[in-house]
């Protein structure tokens, strides 16, 4: 029997799992990453002479439900045309029988890596608002993401914020994607559960720590408030890793409301959550944090301190002038 050292074994393992691109317009360049459902490769589109990302299910996961899930992911992304969601270019089946789709190749950093160099809290909150945009757009079109977490948010080289990995997304019944949406309710043949990084097939999908209690329990019908919980957890992550020390109580209250155990206590929509964060940034009251009269006055003073200082300077100057003239 042929003896194989560790590096030869690793190369052969990679060769076996690599997508068979025979008969396609793509040429394999490098593996970019691997998740629970599939792997993503950088490939060259030889027809258009550009590099794109190709996602394909793992070789060992040739099961119909996983293949269906990948196709659904491609269809969901293709229909959600939004600057915060990576566009899909193409989909099909490889010579080795595995389904795949290609999408725009984005170079950048995951949110986790990006915010390491971003200490200013207001900058982090603006990033958060840009995460909310595509999620709100998806909800408006009847799609739940169901696996929102920092690792699934990418910040591109030009500062674009992209919500990635819609592999666990769910089309809500009656969702309105595209003009024919009403004719395309959720496919009942698709499993409600599938694999995710850190989970096995048939177990609860999603990522612990960012998953709402109702999603973690695996029971009940999920609605947009499950994603709102995850967004609250992302906001908490952004605030918790900021280097600016104490988190303002209003922001803590926004997190607590978004991550309420009982979903009726959460924000009813992503725009409501985003509006509260935007209000905080503008120094306005937030719905999640009822203020005392003193706190309202202090916030008003803080927000208008420039004008107040000018007014104070004017009053002091006038007083001094009156004082010296009167002598």
């Amino acid at each position: 029997m042929r003896s194989l050292n560790d590096s030869a074994l690793a190369r052969l393992q990679e060769a076996v799992d690599a997508p068979d691109l025979e008969g396609t317009r793509y040429r394999l360049i490098a593996k970019l990453g691997q998740g629970g459902m599939g792997s993503v490769y950088q490939v060259e589109d030889r027809t258009l002479a550009r590099d794109v990302a190709l996602k394909v299910i793992n070789l060992a996961d040739g099961r119909n439900e996983v293949a269906a899930r990948l196709l659904q992911e491609a269809q969901v992304i293709a229909r959600l045309e939004h600057p915060g969601i990576i566009p899909v270019h193409d989909a099909g089946t490889l010579a080795d029988g595995r389904p795949y789709y290609t999408m725009k190749l984005v170079q950048g950093k995951s949110l986790e890596d990006y915010v390491r160099d971003l200490d200013v809290m207001s900058d982090r909150l603006r990033i958060f608002l840009r995460i909310c945009d595509p999620v709100a757009f998806a909800h408006a079109h009847g799609v739940l993401h169901r696996d929102l977490k920092p690792a699934n948010v990418m910040v591109g080289l030009f500062g674009e914020v992209l919500v990635m990995d819609w592999g666990l997304s769910k089309l809500l019944t009656g969702g309105a994607i595209g003009s024919d949406a009403a004719a395309k309710p959720a496919d009942p043949s698709l499993p409600d559960k599938c694999s995710a990084p850190g989970t096995d097939h048939g177990s609860v999908l999603g990522t612990l720590g960012y998953m709402s209690p109702e999603q973690a329990s695996g029971g009940g019908q999920l609605d947009p408030r499950a994603d709102i919980y995850s967004l609250g957890a992302i906001l908490e992550f952004l605030l918790g890793t900021a280097g600016s020390g104490r988190v303002p109580r209003a922001l803590s209250a926004i997190c607590e409301k978004a991550m309420a155990a009982e979903r009726n206590d959460r924000y009813s929509s992503v725009p409501d959550l985003a509006a509260d964060v935007a209000h905080f940034l503008d120094g306005l009251p937030v719905t999640a944090y009822p203020e005392s009269a003193f706190a309202q006055a202090w916030r008003w003073i803080t927000r208008n301190r420039t004008w107040l200082l000018l007014l104070l300077a004017y009053v002091v100057t006038r007083a001094l002038l009156i004082f010296f003239r009167s002598r």
């Binding site: 990679e14 076996v16 793992n58 060992a60 096995d200």
Partner: peptide, 14 residues
């Protein structure tokens, strides 16, 4: 078979 293929191909299940 599926689980062993994943192990063999370096894909780890939890």
């Amino acid at each position: 078979f599926r689980r062993e293929a994943q192990t063999l191909l370096g894909v780890r299940l939890a």
